[in-house]
Computed example of a mutant assay.
Amino acid sequence: MEAAYRDTLAEIARIQRRPPPIVPLPFADDTMLTRAWVNDPIHDDVAPMEHHVIAPTLRGDGWSEVRFGASSIRAPSVTGGITIAPRGFGGRFDCDGRPVASNVFVSRGRLQRCADAMGLRQPAELLPRLNFADPKLFAILALIGAEAKQGGPHSRLYLETLLDLLCVQLLRDHSAFPLQDRSIGHGLKPRQVRHVTDYMKVHLDEAVALQQLADLLGLSRFHFCTAFRKATGHTPHQYLVRIRMERAKDLLDDSRLTVTDVALAVGYQTPSSFTQAFRAAIGVTPSAYRAARQ
């Protein structure tokens, strides 16, 4: 154990104020599983842990936000979503719901063993995810959870095989490199585009930075811009402006809102900057658009 990292079970027990329900089977490479359990709200700084923590949401509830460095990720807790806290990852966690989740604690050794078997040359590193959609990964985690609950004479062998399959899927779609570089040439995957654009919609009234969007997928700004443009035909800024303008048109139909109200609601701090952006995108000023609609 490295001194900078906390014992995984101790840190999980600290933030949840009770120990996690560990499955009492000895797995290879210090891998551990929990049964399904209700996660209480968290408003705490979570220290870097020894293990990669993989948490599928079995019943969603509330919203979660993670702030790390100058970046943040915010997403609703939805059934089928997956949160990944890579080994050594720490930050401020604010989770206001009580979702039902399970956990797989994957050691560095196990993930690296699978990476070596796949012929990957670099150290195995995972990307942080928050309530992220990956149906394949969730299906594997669901099988792990069902077998851990049922048990049987061959459960450990079956679970060890599933855990290796889990590591393969993590390395294929959630590793820092080199697999992400292969996907850049084809653009982002549809689920990655949805994740980014959903974030844009939730944060329309904020100054959304390019680095924040890139951090959602664990990519550099350059790679993110290139892959987003190949997937959508637009730069991230162009896409964000388009979403803002569509929302602005809906809000302008509400006569109770002033143009300033609408500007602030879609992320513009002054009516003049909003008017300039709206006219460039729609062809008329917000006031003229509203007048034509009445």
Rank of each mutant, 00 (worst) to 15 (best):
R67D: 05
D96Q: 05
F105I: 10
P99I: 01
R108G: 15
V100W: 08
G119F: 06
R129S: 10
G60Q: 09
P19L: 01
V193M: 07
A263K: 01
V106E: 13
F222G: 14
Q180H: 14
L213Q: 09
L58P: 04
S272F: 11
A13P: 05
L264M: 10
V106T: 05
F138K: 07
W37P: 00
K149V: 13
S77E: 15
L126V: 01
D45L: 15
S102R: 09
P153M: 07
A281Q: 12
G88F: 04
T258N: 08
H234V: 03
V266S: 02
R293A: 13
Q122N: 14
P26R: 10
A148K: 01
F132K: 01
H234T: 09
P19A: 04
S287F: 09
F89A: 08
L179I: 04
S255G: 12
R244E: 00
G91P: 06
P19V: 00
L120H: 08
V284I: 12
F93G: 11
T226E: 13
H154I: 15
F228R: 06
Q276G: 02
L127S: 08
Q211M: 13
L171N: 00
V262D: 04
S255Q: 11
H43R: 13
G119R: 09
F93Q: 08
D261V: 01
E160Q: 11
L163H: 03
V168Y: 12
T258M: 09
L171T: 00
L251Q: 06
L111S: 08
Q169D: 13
V193A: 08
R110N: 11
L141F: 09
D181G: 10
P41F: 02
